[in-house]
């Protein structure tokens, strides 16, 4: 991919059209993922799907602008930290159930149904799973992209 056009060296990423569209849509995709996570106990969706949508917004950024910019926004170290943090948070919520009796006890007050802040530990678990899934699958994507680059050098 050492191709150079007439206007000098090639920029990383795709064309201007794709970059402009990406700039407009990537924030909306990220917000949609957050919405799916936070409303996981009220509407279809939940931690897994919402975390994947958040990861896809960063992958969208990486495909349009090249890997350097996307890794500046969400580095490999951050992916590793967030994945471990999600796993530990999920386990901690599970272990805190022992304060009331048993593992995975829903120890927070349930609240009124159909409220955003209801259902006890379920929204917290959704957030933990979304951190874990989003960061983990983004890390897998980074690993595969680096593999691709290494193959080209050989």
């Amino acid at each position: 991919m050492k191709k150079t056009s007439k206007r000098g060296p090639r920029e990383p990423g795709m064309t201007l059209i794709v970059k402009t569209i990406t700039r407009l849509t990537v924030g909306l995709i990220f917000l949609y993922g957050v919405y799916i996570v936070v409303h996981g106990h009220l509407t279809p969706g939940g931690g897994f799907a919402g975390g994947l949508i958040i990861a896809l917004s960063f992958i969208h950024l990486m495909l349009a602008f090249g890997k350097d910019l996307a890794l500046k926004k969400f580095s490999k170290a951050a992916a590793s930290i967030f994945e471990s943090l999600g796993g530990i948070l999920f386990l901690t919520i599970a272990l805190l159930g022992f304060t009331g009796g048993y593992f995975f006890l829903n120890f927070i007050r349930k609240g009124r149904p159909f409220d955003l802040f209801s259902a006890g530990i379920i929204p917290l678990c959704n957030i933990a799973i979304s951190l874990k899934v989003g960061a983990g699958l983004f890390a897998i994507f980074i690993a595969l992209v680096f593999l691709q680059i290494l193959k080209k050098e050989e």
Partner: peptide, 27 residues
């Protein structure tokens, strides 16, 4: 459970062990 989405109440309350195992598999 107080969760309006029945699927969330099953996978994160009644059957939360399954979800923990699934998270471990993904990790």
């Amino acid at each position: 459970t107080g969760a309006a989405n029945l699927v969330a109440s099953v996978i994160l309350d009644f059957r939360a062990y399954d979800t923990l195992g699934e998270a471990t598999v993904l990790f």
